[in-house]
Amino acid sequence: MLTKRIIPCLDIINRRVTKGVKFKNNVDLGAPVKMAIGYSEGGCDELVMYDITASAEGRPIDIGMVQDIAKSIRIPFAVGGGIATLEDMSRVLLAGAEKISVNSLAVQNPDIIAQGSRAFGAQCIVLGMDPVATSDTRTCPSGYEVTTRGFREHKGMDAVEWAKRAEQLGIGEIVVNSVDADGTRDGFELKVTRMIAEAVRVPVVASGGAGCPEHLRDAFNVARADAAIVAGLLHTGEYSIKRLKDALDSFGVPMRMHW
């Protein structure tokens, strides 16, 4: 049976792992390579690294950082932040990552999804999206709107429609990241995650808001996500992956329990 994945997320600023609340007030949490090795050996199923200031600073992703992490872990590794061109994608893959996450820049230029998918295969290209609830259901019938640039820009685009379009363009997986939940540890935004999971045939990853094992259980069982991204509750040491997985296993969620 295919197991549900737990994916720790390393948000990088100046080669340090940081964590904010609703994408603000980031605090320093440690050295990326050391944390990556710790999570990998601790039983995480995949790892994601976001160079969170690359897009805003208009610079390419920190490729040295990608290489250092890729060299030190032997589990799937996804990378996002500042990826605008096929060239950027190729550099990230050559550095040893297997998935490329596109977000703001794919909204500006959706064709990058199709190009990346053709060049490297759909399984390489992950769409990260940052939906927020909106009352403007004329523009956004699902009640969720796509935002970009760390939730700063509202795009007047329906989140579920965007997910479907990205699937047609050749995305291999979709990460649904909620700003309203990000860093709050109040639980994932289940409603929009489920709407998107129902609308597409590719796997969906819940992100933002994990505070306890029950939140992950709900992401898997209620929102029907295939994987969940966690940050704060692991980074602070409050939970280990093992402890999270033991709890989820006891709830009957299929987990990889040996590593």
Binding site: K4, R5, G172, D226, R256
Partner: peptide
Amino acid sequence: DPWQKVPQIGWNR
């Protein structure tokens, strides 16, 4: 079952 997503992505036995 439409909830069995394609591609299969993840750890399986």
